[in-house]
Write a protein that binds this DNA or RNA. Structure first.
Length: 573
RNA sequence: CGGGGCGUAGCGCAGCCUGGUAGCGCAUCUGGUUUGGGACCAGAGGGUCGGGUGUUCGAAUCACCCCGCCCCGACCA
């Protein structure tokens, strides 16, 4: 490709509305442009990278034995009614009617469609197991799209669905996908971590998320310093540092206008860990929709709302309103577990706690000397607190937990029969009886990966694509306007084209600085500089995007560059 | 949807408080000079000042409504 013909509009200034580096650089380097909220154009360079990512994903999925197909973006409401998600899925599902008044939606995921397809064709256990995948655009009407490709409404996803005769077979495929995902993210040159995850609304049993480690990540993930345990904090198991206190009698103390944990602790001259934090929640969705519950953790801990929701059988929870607090006999800022008219859930670490300070359910008053087993006999104990740095690992009991931020780029689930059953994905088993297929599903956010890679691979000059992903591998930069430099460049360019490399020739009538800056901004791994000076010295410069520098004669420069490319590729993997 | 911020040329911004007929840098176009790190000179084009309504002799500027964007929260690949 000649740069003079390339549609690659780069920007000098960072667009003001882009917050994270990946968004800024992808815009500046001319890889993407925004169409509307959470919806983007992929320009030629961006599409090249996207395709490179897709192809690595394809190769590894194929190698793992999955088969590619392609399902539609538009899906009929009937499928969703059958799976009972038409009502459950919520406003993220973009629904519309066609000219006949027929209700449809844009696919946010494809369990329904694949189940419908497979249910029609699946007859016998002999056809199983089977793993089908696609790389396709999804649409989710996200509440708040942000960070460019990181959280779009329309995005490219690889979604795979496996079907099995039984749970053991599913477990095997789950492991197979787990391993394939490791291969994929390694080939993409990413620092990542697989963590145990909450299944969320998708349902099913086992589940892992794959996170690219980055400060800008939206998720908090935690891992053990000693064993291989790693989990999303939404789900992580750990035990807090022990707290000891003297047992004593209950006593009321006046704490005027002090309701925040820090304020109360400072006012009473104690550590926040001596306090009991009581938060009142309302269940949303699930069998106990609308139920009000109290959740208690130590003052220095936080309630992990997802854990609470799972514990009480709700889809999610929300903090109760002032009116709801009054209804159960307490007031804002001074809630405590005694004499509350609702079920009281307590973090399991509090089972034997004594000498705590808690709200008295009266304005401006706290109680001291709270003994949980004595004073809150009806408490229900469960894992409710959010894991903190330094907690003891809930798995090995030896290491302590460390925290990092992650971008979720993959998620795999053992679904079991949650979709196959309502969608009637049935087959005849070995005994000749009708059976429900057991399913797994495996997602990778392909377009999000593009952003995640940039988050990890950039410097002050721009993007530094891993060789595997780079839109072009080599940039031939012509300097000056001499006929000889131009002719020499063209020769090198053609030689590289013949060698089958993705090469771009910067033949523009621009000053050297502009060409260098653009090559760096767009992250081309290797550049060959062809100028009169180099030609006169019979030594052309080859420079890597990571600072490496070599020289070669005009005759040898192509081979040299190809060799360098190869060794860069190996470093990558 | 709740809270905060913003909307003036392709990009980055000033002007608004105190109303007077729209400006700067970069980019773009023409001509010329230049070419190993975002060149220089001369000239040129490009704006419903997000939209509407109102106040006013007069609105980018003041008021009200709407729309859009960004950040924090709930969602998730």
């Amino acid at each position: 490709m000649r740069y003079s013909k390339l549609f690659s509009p780069t920007l000098r200034d960072t667009p003001a509305d882009a917050e994270v580096v990946s968004h800024q650089l992808l815009l500046r380097a001319g890889f993407i442009r925004r169409v509307t909220s959470g919806v983007y154009d992929y320009l030629p360079l961006g599409l090249r990278v996207l395709r490179n990512i897709e192809n690595i994903v394809r190769e590894e999925m194929n190698r793992a034995g999955a088969q590619e197909l392609l399902m539609p973006m538009v899906q009929p409401s009937e499928f969703w009614q059958k799976s009972e998600r038409w009502d459950k899925y919520g406003p993220e599902l973009l629904r519309f009617k066609d000219r006949h008044g027929h209700e449809s939606c844009l696919g946010p995921t494809h369990e329904e469609v694949i189940c419908d397809l497979v249910s029609r064709e699946l007859k016998s256990y002999k056809q199983l197991p089977m793993n089908l995948y696609q790389v396709q655009n999804k649409f989710r009407d996200e509440i708040r799209p942000r960070f460019g490709l990181m959280r779009g409404r329309e995005f490219v996803m690889k979604d795979a669905y496996s079907f099995h005769a039984n749970a053991e077979c599913l477990a095997k495929e789950y492991q197979n996908m787990f391993d394939a995902y490791h291969c994929i993210f390694n080939r993409l040159g990413l620092k990542f971590r697989a963590v145990e995850a909450d299944n969320g609304s998708i349902g099913g049993s086992a589940s892992h998320e794959f996170h690219v480690l980055a400060e800008s990540g939206e998720d908090l993930i935690t891992h053990c310093s000693a064993c291989d345990y790693a989990a999303n904090v939404e789900k992580a198991l750990s035990t807090p540092v022990e707290h000891t206190a003297e047992d004593s009698v209950l006593n009321e103390v006046s704490t005027p206008h002090k309701s925040a944990v820090e304020d109360v602790a400072a006012f009473l001259k104690v550590e926040p860990s001596s306090l009991l934090k009581t938060l009142v929640y309302v269940a949303i969705g699930g069998e106990n929709d609308g139920q009000i519950v109290a959740a208690c953790v130590r003052g220095n801990d936080n309630v992990q709302e997802i854990k609470l929701a799972r514990t009480i059988g709700a889809d999610e929870v929300a903090l109760a309103s002032v009116e709801q607090l009054l209804a159960i006999g307490t007031v804002t800022g001074f809630a405590g577990p005694t004499q509350l008219d609702c079920p009281i859930y307590m973090d399991q670490s509090l089972q034997h706690a004594v000498g705590l300070i808690a709200g008295a359910n009266k304005k401006d008053i706290h109680i001291t000397g709270l003994n949980i087993s004595r004073d809150v006999p009806d408490a229900i104990f469960a894992d409710l607190r959010e894991t903190q740095v330094g907690d003891t690992c809930g798995k090995c009991g030896k290491g302590h937990m460390e925290m990092s931020r992650g971008i979720e780029v993959g998620h795999i689930f053992e679904l079991g029969t949650v979709y196959a059953k309502p969608m009637e994905v049935l087959f005849q088993n070995e005994q000749g009886k009708r059976d429900v297929a057991t399913m797994g599903c495996y997602g990778i956010g392909v377009s999000r990966l593009m952003a995640a890679v940039v988050e990890q691979c950039n410097d002050d000059y721009g993007i530094m694509w891993p060789v595997n992903l780079a839109p072009f591998k080599i940039s031939v930069i012509t300097l000056g306007k001499s006929e000889t430099a131009f002719a020499a460049s063209e020769k090198i360019y053609n030689e590289l084209l013949d060698a089958g490399v993705d090469v771009v020739w910067d033949d523009r009538k621009e000053s050297p600085g502009v060409k260098f800056k653009d090559a760096e901004l767009t992250g081309i791994p290797l550049r060959i500089v062809v100028g009169d000076r180099g030609l006169d010295n019979n030594a052309l410069e080859i420079k890597t995007r990571w600072g490496g520098k070599e020289e070669a004669t005009p005759e040898a420069v192509c081979q040299k560059a190809l060799d360098m490319l190869q060794s860069l590729q190996q470093e990558n993997n």
